[in-house]
């Protein structure tokens, strides 16, 4: 397990699209990083689909409370993928984005969970960091896809947890800010500059977030999917 740095970010749009998730999971670990941590998990087949329950507790240490309770919107992207043994490209995957805002008045965590099945998000309120940590750590019922896609020759499950990755929404807000800085500060009569507009247009998305935790299960086979 590795944690490079921690940084609060703006709310993220749904970034759990399959392609993005595949790219994220296929991305090599950052230079100098440690080997992936162990991913405790349970797999099951329900209704012809593979459902995973993973324990991501190691990705959410208690020290994360300071960051997640800072009153800013924090985003956590979680990708879980089934990767064939000896391969790198996911055969099955699931992604979700969790937006967390600690309400400094109510002193509770407002959480919005978005995934491909509920793109508009499911909202819930968690009273304490312990509850939030528990919620984030125990990812239950993750729909990885049809059972038929399970690699027959063995596989492993990998989870990638990104804390405050750069989202497209954040990129768009930054672009708008560059193109029209006065509007970003709510000043009256903001004006757009050609240079700023061009810089905004040419602003590229940086590499996937550096604040990434990788967890990986041991080798698995189709038999380890009960109900299959």
């Amino acid at each position: 397990m590795r944690r490079v740095r921690s940084r609060p970010r703006a709310p993220a749009r749904l970034t759990a699209a399959a392609a993005l998730a595949a790219l994220a999971l296929a991305a090599p670990p950052a230079a100098g990083s440690d080997a992936p941590g162990t991913l405790p998990l349970q797999l099951a087949a329900r209704g012809g689909r593979v459902v995973a329950t993973v324990d991501l507790a190691t990705a959410f240490p208690a020290s994360l409370e300071h960051e997640l309770a800072n009153g800013l919107t924090n985003v956590i992207a979680i990708y879980v993928a089934v990767i064939p043994a000896g391969g790198r490209q996911p055969a099955m995957l699931y992604g979700r984005v969790v937006e967390i805002l600690f309400d400094v008045w109510d002193e509770k965590y407002q959480v919005t969970v978005k995934d491909p099945y509920v793109p508009q998000g499911v909202r819930l309120v968690l009273p304490t960091f312990a509850a939030l940590r528990g919620f984030l750590s125990q990812e239950r019922g993750l729909d990885l896809g049809p059972v038929s896609l399970l690699p027959g020759d063995g596989f492993f499950v990998e989870a990638r947890v990104e804390v405050n990755p750069l989202s497209k929404e954040q990129l768009e807000r930054t672009r708008e800010f560059i193109a029209n800085p006065a509007a970003g500060t709510r000043a009256q009569g903001g004006s757009r500059s050609m240079l700023g507009a061009m810089a905004s247009f040419l602003l590229r998305e940086p590499d996937a977030g550096a604040d990434v935790t990788l967890l990986r299960s041991g080798p698995l086979g189709p038999r380890e999917v009960p109900g299959r």
Binding site: L166, A199, F201, L203
Partner: peptide, 21 residues
């Protein structure tokens, strides 16, 4: 959040300004 986003993209913003310029 905006400032932090801009800060996170600082290097890329500099490059985009250079590209635009």
């Amino acid at each position: 959040e905006l400032v932090q986003g801009v800060d996170a993209l600082r290097a890329e913003i500099r490059r985009s300004y250079v590209r635009a310029f």
